[in-house]
Design a protein around this nucleic acid. Structure first.
Lengths: 189, 189
DNA sequence: GTCTTGACCTAATCGGTGTAGGCAAGATAC
DNA sequence: GTATCTTGCCTACACCGATTAGGTCAAGAC
């Protein structure tokens, strides 16, 4: 399954993953794969689960040592890095296998965000909104970037700037993060 | 080609479009399609061009009568509506056919944004950044929403809120839009 | 009236997924 | 130590969808 994920990364997206090629990579005939996986769909699902597990891992890691807006920015960067290094895994994790396992792991990923936000006084409902905004912006940027939609070479700076702008706006909007808001503003002057 | 676009919309994304099915829809055998199109890829490309032309149309329409932040919010909403009504077309337009025609039409879509921003004093470089942020957020939200990633029923409100937050942040960030910034702030109190 | 052209057809190829059934070697049971 | 079970692979094959080759037929051009 790890081999499949690597191959998906090389192909750029999980949609371009082929069992034929995976079999070749493993020096095995295609039908032999069916001893280990159910179907191509099943492989994609497996990669998605790997991706989400990775995601939880790197997000926790990124958040640790920072707090509030710093933590969130670090997390956003971590997601972008992951997507660039593992486009196949990322695309699988973001795509809709949508089974029970997927939802379960997805919840644990979400929990990392919720934890960071809750530590700073954001209610669960507000956190939902906050996370939606963040996910949308990150996922949109990353997707367009991977597709080659953004021209310039300064995309990392662009990403940072956008995230900072969005975070500042979000902190202005949601009560309970006054301290963070103040800190971010001080840092940006 | 219109029929193909409609079918793609019904299937939810251009990736799920099949020539077999298209032929069936047109009461024709599959190979007969090749008198009219080059390949499946070609059909997808055609749908992408339709989508971008539509996009330019609805964006111009949305922008007219508004200015600045209002115009941008209206445009964002228009894109979301379009994506919801025509998921197949939208996905085609956003995906990477990336040929000369595509880039040409894409430029005209971009021009609508640039025009709105320029009318209010934003330089071309700043506009690039501004548009990146907006596109990323809109595309990300819309993509995740279409995938069924957002639970609640209040997604339109969520979208509006996020766009407002982002726009406010962007207006704070970029000089040359002072008037707009003031207006938006007044409106939000 | 023949010729061209366009829109359609059938037959067949190709690449990719998935199924059926067999074979060999190591693990395990007795 | 032999019988059996399991595991992992194989070949052969069915199936599906895209695409190609080549033929038919009718309507309009000359």
């Amino acid at each position: 399954m790890h081999a499949a994920a690597d191959l998906a990364d090389e192909r750029g997206t999980v949609d371009n993953l082929q069992l034929v090629e995976l079999a070749e990579r493993l020096s095995v005939r295609t039908p032999s794969l069916y001893a280990h996986v159910e179907s191509l769909e099943d492989v994609r699902r497996g990669i998605a689960l790997i991706a989400l597990a990775d995601m939880r891992e790197i997000l926790s890691h990124a958040a640790s040592g920072h707090s509030g807006a710093d933590a969130l920015l670090a997390m956003a960067r971590a997601i972008r890095s992951y997507a660039r290094e593992h486009p196949g895994r990322y695309s699988a994790g973001a795509a809709p296998p949508r089974d029970k396992d997927w939802h379960e792991v997805q919840r644990t990923v979400r929990a990392v965000f919720v934890t960071v936000l809750a530590r700073h006084g954001l209610s669960d409902d507000d956190a939902t909104e906050f996370i939606r905004a963040l996910r949308a912006a990150i996922h949109g940027f990353v997707t367009l970037e991977l597709q080659g939609d953004f021209g310039g070479p300064d995309r990392a700076a662009s990403f940072d700037r956008i995230m900072r702008i969005l975070l500042k706006g979000l902190l202005d909007e949601f009560p309970g993060l006054a301290a963070e808001r103040r800190r971010l503003r001080a840092a940006s002057t």
